[in-house]
Design a protein around this nucleic acid. Structure first.
Length: 351
DNA sequence: AAAGCGTGGCG
DNA sequence: TCGCCAAGCTT
């Protein structure tokens, strides 16, 4: 086993030296890692593809090159920079974390996994990843890719969801004492480029001779997958309410779905029971312009889009809450819109 | 501890 | 088309 373990880390690192992707947050060789950039990239990459992250990362770093500058930004600015990327609580936690790093750590990230784990938005994976990649500590890093790679290398048959301890033991076993940051990134690169879930490119894999799943011809059966339940369908209504070339916008509640983001007034789909939106019930909904379908992780949304133009709005006896804002149409791109809201806006433009 | 939380791409 | 998937965290 020690021989196999040694071979794995050496083969993988030499593969990484040849094949590593040149990603904007990566430094190679003797270049020093910037913990701030490692942190931003790791938060953005949570459940998010590399190709989706790259443009957001570049814009983000351009706007806030250091933690000091980020900590002096406003939450809404950061939410706007996050607009469209998804999982928006990440932006809120990122800001809170930035303030802590500024005020308590003088803008220097703590180097230990244990300290990193205490920070908002940083869980087991991210703490280990920052520790390994930014500071080259020998942390055991486990993400979705690594779970799959390790399960195949050692023929671990239990579903990865219920096999954390065993996967940790084997990952610990293969993690080298040097070049830890390169090693964990190599494992993740291998998982995403070669040891893919459905069509692994075993013939190109530097670890093909060490892989127990491959030896037994079961690489496609590992890790074992559990089929998900079918997604429920929800229905809702969204309202583009016009007044003098402005549209009515409000900020969503600070907890739950699309928390704290700007939004058109909507109704009936998100379990928020926001009493500020009660006035929508008295609106005439005869003027529907379109339907929109939008997929969330855990439900499918069918949204009906209505236009309420000023001639109609004027004659209605509605009380619009104080914290709603009339936003000029042309400055709508300055808002922190989710992709759903952007979809509604585009539907309105085409409607 | 299981559920909630986004989005866009892909086969 | 539509289910699956992608460098998880929080409660």
């Amino acid at each position: 086993m020690p021989k196999k373990v040694n071979k794995i880390s050496r083969s993988l690192l030499s593969w990484y030296d040849r094949e590593a992707r040149d990603l904007p947050w990566r430094k190679f060789g003797k270049d020093k890692q910037d913990p701030y950039k490692v942190w931003i990239s790791e938060i953005m990459l949570q459940q998010t593809t590399v190709s989706a992250v790259i443009p957001y990362f570049n814009a983000f770093i351009k706007k806030w090159p250091t933690n000091k500058e980020l900590s002096q930004a406003s939450l809404s600015e950061i939410q706007r920079a996050w607009s469209g990327l998804g999982y928006y609580s990440r932006a809120r936690n990122l800001f809170e974390c930035s303030i802590i790093i500024n005020s308590r750590f003088n803008n220097n990230f703590p180097e230990s996994e244990k300290e990193l784990l205490k920070l908002p938005g940083i869980g087991a994976y991210t703490a280990a990843a920052i520790s390994a990649i930014a500071f080259n500590n020998r942390s055991v890093v486990i993400d979705g890719n690594i779970k799959r790679v390790i399960s195949r290398l050692f023929l671990l048959k239990k579903p990865i969801k219920s096999n954390y301890n065993e996967i940790w033991r084997f990952t610990n076993l293969v993690t080298p004492d040097i070049r830890v940051g390169d090693f964990v990134q190599a494992l993740m690169d291998l998982g995403s480029q070669i040891c893919k879930p459905s069509k692994p490119l075993c013939e190109s894999c530097p670890l093909i001779l060490e892989c127990d799943a491959r030896k037994n011809n079961v690489e496609l059966l590992i890790p074992k997958r559990i089929k998900k339940n079918t997604k429920p369908i929800r229905n809702g209504s969204a309202f583009v309410i016009k007044n003098n070339d402005c549209v009515l916008i409000y900020k969503r509640k600070t907890k739950g779905l699309l928390a704290g983001l700007d939004s058109f007034p909507t109704f009936g789909w998100d379990n928020q029971n926001d009493e500020r939106l009660n006035f929508l019930k008295s609106l005439n909904t005869n003027k529907k312009i379109s339907n929109i379908k939008h997929e969330f992780t855990h439900f499918t949304l069918n949204m009906e889009i209505y236009i309420i133009d000023e001639s109609i709005a004027k004659n209605l006896n509605i009380n619009i809450p104080d914290d709603f804002r009339w936003i000029p149409i042309e400055s709508i791109e300055n808002l922190s819109f989710s992709s759903l809201m952007m979809k509604i806006y585009k539907s309105y433009l085409n409607g």
